[in-house]
Design a protein around this nucleic acid. Structure first.
Length: 824
RNA sequence: GGGCAAGUGGCGGAACUGGUAUACGCGUAGGUCUCAAAAACCUAUGGUGGCAACACCUUGUGGGUUCGACUCCCACCUUGCCCACCA
């Protein structure tokens, strides 16, 4: 008997599958299309990570199940190779990204991903850094621009001093750059934004309609951060000379505390806008504003930092009780949220409380429930000191006060979102140049392609792609523009409008724009029209939206949000007939090692190649999925993987043995029953991504087969191999052949189970006394309660417990359990 | 501070709509094979007491509901993840 030589058989079948096109789907003719998507990797120099094997292994196993269920499964793969991650790595190793990406993608594909034994359709590969792809990323930008969803505006933005570029809100994690962990600095700059906020409500409400992991939905919900409240106008005593309205608007979700507002705090940003309008701020105030606008975001929002602020010498009228209250500027109020100004209610907000204590400001209790002399009471309660609203509880108070404010035109109910517009400009090299042209002459003439953006014109679509020139010195300069700005041939261009000399936009777009639509491209890469359109409409109709998407939750508020936004935008522009890109999304957990997230600095990174060499891809795939629940991830243990290897070895030798055996054994009824139960369980578990329990059930069944070798025949072995095939595609293929079957096990249908075998004519009845297990008995199916009671009471184990007291009552669960309850 | 998820043997974990807690795997111990070792295979393996049959205890802690709770309810503790001066 041959030894199980994983490496050899895996290489052998991979070659055969590749040669025969075993997994190829006919995109045009497929009758039961199933788009099985997983997040494509960025080809880092470190190579494939076990985390990838985990994600791909799980998703591929699911895809294989779908295939066996008769679907035409399309499982494409590609590389997210454009963008800052690739560029930073290139800088680090001192190579040009263009050459580096060629090396890394080929290493990923040829040496690693092809070894996994996945259904990957390399004929439909998408590489985001190739001109034939980013041409369409640029096209996408232009469509958004035309629809008014891509705008250039001046705003306070986050700047990473190390990556030397601005970042999107989503790419700043706790005040630090997502890529390099440097502290970001706030800068006021003019940049390109995509108007995600236009879709805030839809991005939120559609969450109820899609089948996604709850964790992911919750993260998106929190990120969108909808809060309903009241925007109230407070009259102001002349801070601004040009604005005759003299008022400040504040946002609150706690209108019930209006009468407790003893001062107003405006953010430095709002105060600055007053100065710009002509307000003569006292010197001390002006200095404070200038100073705090320079401080970076992290310092400004650090929790432990003591609050600072200055009195503006301006007063406002509280629109509730008409009292005159002081206006302060303080940097604990954010310019970017709500109106950038608040009514401070120190009695019922801990931040305002801290501030009031420090600067000796009045604290008035308006909600009963706490001890305001000690700390702010932020809960709800009955209103006091609130004039006509006294006695109402908080909820009523919010309603009544809101009505009062609206009736008297003192403000309006509004909705605020935490979500900001997506800043996509990057002052970097390795990305798709933003396909826009600025013409001085047209700007002077007031011409534009879009309102509010005089002088800006998109590159004519026939001129796409705007190719990224080969730049030897591509490193970011930190001058606020991309290195592309140093290339005169790139920079100068004819104005598409008037033909005079104009300038190109030199920034490139965010890497998340590349990945926001890649799934739309996959099915269409081989279409005859792939050069004319980004995605073929007939093909798209057939294959999209994506049927199943599996990936990590680290993209919950990045890629997954952006992809939804882009899909909605393309839907509204008229290119797609669906709003949501992914019908079903499941977030998988994280594979950790030695109790911690894998990282090079910790030195606990597991290299999948090592394990594929020693045990084979099948073992590695199954081992990772066996770790624990797929949504939870697990801790990789170099030792425990041997257990799975042993399992496959045992499968190997048992099937060989069965294949060699010429005798015609028949499985007992018990064996048939176990097999049918197994078919049912594995099918259901794989469908629900419960890989760990499916594998455990297979192991259990194998143990049973080993105990009852005289009942085994080829039919049984074949069924077992079929069940194993989505999890371990190579060994299954080999064993299928060993059993004398024709190529390929992967052309087979998922076996069906027979319900008649699932039922037993005997049942096991559990006997409890006072709810505790005491004995069990075998009985024919359909036995009555009385018969069981009689049998039970004869049992010595039961007698011991029942003689202590009279049986008061008994609980009978048909065919399963009898519980005898004694008195005393 | 807010949100989400989770606490079960030495370890990873299993347990259907509340009904035999600890499946499956790792590890450990003993054994078989071997000159020996590895591998493989077999047996045992939640804790305490007992020679044993067996008994009692056990799903983070404390209560509750129930004939019966890992599962449901309340409070608390701990860990992980996400967000965070968001008004």
């Amino acid at each position: 008997m041959k030894r199980y030589d994983a490496k050899t058989i895996e290489a052998k079948w991979q070659e055969r599958w590749d040669r025969d096109g075993t997994f190829r789907v006919d995109i045009k003719k497929a009758e039961r299309p199933f788009f099985n998507l997983m997040m494509f990797p960025y080809p880092s120099g470190e190579g494939l990570h076990v985390g990838h094997v985990y994600a791909f292994g799980g998703a591929d196993t699911f895809g294989r199940l779908k295939r066996m269920q008769g679907y035409n499964v399309f499982e494409p793969m590609g590389f997210d190779s454009f963008g800052i991650h690739s560029e930073n790595y290139a800088i680090k190793v001192g190579k040009h990204p263009r050459e580096l990406i060629q090396e890394t993608t080929s290493y990923f594909r040829e040496r690693q991903m092809k070894r996994l034994g996945a259904l990957f359709d390399w004929d439909h590969e998408v590489i985001t850094s190739q001109p034939n792809y980013y041409k369409w990323t640029q096209w996408l930008f232009i469509q958004l621009f035309k629809a008014g969803l891509a705008v250039r505006k001046k705003a306070p933005v986050d700047w990473c001093p190390s990556c030397k570029t601005v970042l999107a809100d989503e790419q700043v994690i706790g005040g630090k750059c997502e890529r390099c962990q440097s502290q970001v600095i706030e800068k006021e700059l003019e940049q390109w934004f995509l108007k995600t906020t236009d879709y805030a409500e839809k991005l939120l409400s559609n969450l109820d309609k899609i089948d996604w992991s709850e964790t992911t939905k919750t993260m998106q919900k929190n990120w969108i951060g909808k809060s309903e409240g009241l925007q109230i106008k407070f009259s102001l005593e002349v801070p601004r000379q040009e604005d005759k309205k003299h008022l400040v608007e504040v946002f609150t979700t706690r209108a019930d505390t209006l009468f407790g507002a003893t001062f107003v705090v405006v953010s430095p940003e709002v105060a600055k806008s007053w100065i710009d309008l002509g307000w003569k701020a006292p010197k001390e105030v002006a200095d404070y504003i200038t100073k705090s606008l320079k401080v970076d975001q992290q310092d400004r929002t650090a929790e432990k930092r003591e609050k600072t602020g200055v009195f503006t010498e301006v007063f406002a009228i509280n629109s509730g009780n008409k009292k005159e209250i002081p206006v302060w500027v303080a940097d604990y109020v954010l310019g970017s949220y709500g109106t950038g100004a608040i009514m401070a209610v120190p009695a019922h907000d801990s931040r305002d409380y801290e501030f009031a204590k420090k600067y000796n400001l009045e604290i008035v209790e308006v909600i009963i429930g706490g001890d305001v002399s000690k700390e702010a009471y932020i809960g709800e309660g009955k209103l006091v000191n609130s004039g006509e609203f006294d006695g109402l509880d908080s909820k009523e108070g919010i309603k009544k006060i809101s009505e009062y404010i609206e009736e008297n035109q003192l403000g309006k109910r509004t909705v605020n979102y935490h979500l900001r517009d997506w800043l996509i400009s990057r002052q970097r090299y390795w990305g798709p140049p933003i396909p826009m042209i600025f013409c001085d002459k047209c700007a002077k003439d007031g011409k534009s392609a879009n309102k509010d953006m005089t002088g800006w014109f998109p590159v004519p679509e026939k001129d796409l792609p705007v190719e990224l020139p080969y730049l030897k010195n591509y490193q970011p300069k930190g001058t606020g523009v991309s290195p592309l700005a140093t290339v005169p041939e790139f920079l100068s261009v004819k104005c598409p409008e008037c033909g005079s000399l104009a300038k190109r936009e030199t920034d490139v777009s965010d890497t998340f724009l590349d990945s926001s639509w890649y799934f739309l491209r996959y099915p269409s890469t081989r279409s005859a029209r792939s050069g004319q359109v980004p995605f073929d409409s007939d093909i798209t109709k057939k294959w999209l939206p994506v049927d199943s998407y599996i990936g990590g939750n680290e993209h919950a508020v990045l890629h997954l949000l952006y992809a939804r936004f882009i899909t909605m935008a393309l839907h509204d522009i008229g290119y797609l007939d669906f709003e949501e890109p992914f019908k079903k999304f499941r977030a998988h957990g994280l594979v950790i090692h030695e109790g911690a997230k894998m990282s090079k600095s910790r030195g606990n990174v597991v290299n999948p190649n090592e394990f594929m060499d020693s045990y084979g891809a099948d073992t590695l795939r199954i081992y990772l999925l066996f770790l624990g629940p797929y949504e939870q991830g697990g801790d990789f243990s170099d030792r425990a993987i041997a257990g799975v290897y042993r399992f496959l070895n045992r499968v190997w030798s048992l099937v060989q043995e069965i294949a060699d055996n010429t005798s015609t054994a028949t499985p007992s009824l018990e064996m048939e029953r176990a097999l049918n139960l197994l078919i049912k369980k594995v099918g259901e578990d794989l469908e629900n991504l419960k890989f760990n329990t499916a594998i455990a059930a297979m192991m259990e069944f194998l143990n049973m087969m080993n105990e009852k070798k005289d009942e085994l025949n080829k039919e049984l072995a074949k069924k077992f191999v079929l069940l194993l095939s989505p999890l371990a595609p190579h060994i299954s293929e080999e064993l299928w052949e060993v059993l004398g079957e024709k190529f390929s096990v992967h052309h087979q249908l998922w076996p069906s189970y027979k319900t008649k075998f699932l039922e037993e004519d005997k049942v096991t009845i559990v006997i409890q006394v006072n709810g505790r297990f005491r004995d069990k008995l075998e009985a024919p199916k359909g036995i009555s309660k009385e018969d069981v009671a009689r049998l039970a009471l004869d049992r010595p184990k039961v007698k011991v417990y029942t003689k202590k007291g009279q049986i008061k009552k008994s609980i009978w669960i048909e065919g399963r359990l009898l519980n005898l309850v004694t008195g005393g």
